[in-house]
């Protein structure tokens, strides 16, 4: 099923049309296991759409998606999560009315059959709590465990997003602008957190901040109007005249 040589993620001819608009147009990509890859591109380039197709939240108009050698093009989102896929959101997507700990518990039990247990109080499942608290500790939110998520600062919510995504020990992690809206100090904390992640985890990261993208990854893919227009090492991509024109030129070099 999943040969050792298989890509962590393989996209072929992936297309997504919203009416007449081709948000993604014939995108093919291979991400190797353990790779850290940045996806960059101007606003509306189709980056988030790409993640939504991989996570299964949206269905592609055409093309195929394979996760560790297994075709998942038609698989429901929860089945993809069970195969080791996790994502975070550009616009924070948590359970705002629940506590930080409950958010984490939901993520921790998500891939366990325990989530269907209804004959024992949740409080009896010590292992779930231990795991949730360890996750909160790792993102520096343990002290906030009893607070409702809506009372957290934006930066803390971004950190909790990471904790939720890590809860299922994913093999492929999709991070959609993890530093979006963060102050410089918070952004540096986030970069440190991401750098410290298990190197075995394959990570795809959408990032507007070029410095962050180049610091966290060794390879960069540039999307523009739904197409891959450049792909290579940070240095190559930086030097690419087309990329400079459409992206770096528009954004100002980082």
């Amino acid at each position: 099923m999943s040969p050792a040589s298989a890509s962590a993620l393989s996209l072929s001819g992936l297309t997504k049309a919203f009416g007449g608009l081709r948000a993604l147009d014939d995108v093919s990509l291979e991400i190797q296991p353990g790779e850290r890859r940045a996806i960059i591109g101007p606003n509306g380039a189709g980056k988030t759409t790409l993640f939504s197709l991989v996570s299964g939240e949206q269905a592609p108009t055409g093309g195929r998606i394979a996760l560790f050698g297994r075709d998942i093009t038609r698989l429901a989102p929860h089945r993809r999560a069970a195969l080791g896929l996790a994502r975070t959101y550009q616009i924070t997507n948590l359970f705002p009315r629940l506590t930080v700990l409950d958010n984490c518990l939901l993520a921790v039990q998500a891939l366990s059959p325990v989530k269907l247990h209804l004959h024992r109080p949740l409080g009896r499942y010590r292992a779930l709590f231990d795991r949730a608290e360890a996750l909160l500790e790792s993102v520096g939110l343990l002290a906030k465990r009893a607070a409702p998520v809506r009372d957290l600062s934006h930066g803390e919510q971004r950190q909790l997003e990471i904790a939720l995504a890590l809860a299922g020990t994913p093999r492929l992690l999709l991070l959609d602008e993890p530093t979006a809206g963060l102050a410089l100090a918070e952004s540096q904390m986030m970069v440190a957190l991401l750098k410290g992640l298990d190197p075995a985890i394959t990570i795809l990261i959408i990032e507007h901040d070029m410095a962050v993208a180049f610091e966290l990854t060794d390879r960069v893919t540039v999307l523009h109007y739904g197409r891959v227009v450049a792909d290579g090492s940070a240095r190559d991509v930086r030097a690419d005249p087309l990329v400079q024109e459409i992206y770096l030129g528009a954004m100002g070099t980082a």
């Binding site: 996570s55 299964g56 939240e57 429901a76 989102p77 929860h78 999560a81 069970a82 996790a86 994502r87 997507n93 948590l94 359970f95 705002p96 009315r97 629940l98 409950d102 518990l105 939901l106 993520a107 039990q109 998500a110 891939l111 989530k115 269907l116 949740l122 939720l164 809860a167 299922g168």
Partner: peptide
């Protein structure tokens, strides 16, 4: 707990694996 999660955000629950 899962039911409450569904009430709060179906989409997030789905990508978490529910």
């Amino acid at each position: 707990m899962s039911l409450v999660g569904v009430r709060e955000s179906e989409t997030r629950m789905r990508t978490l694996g529910y």
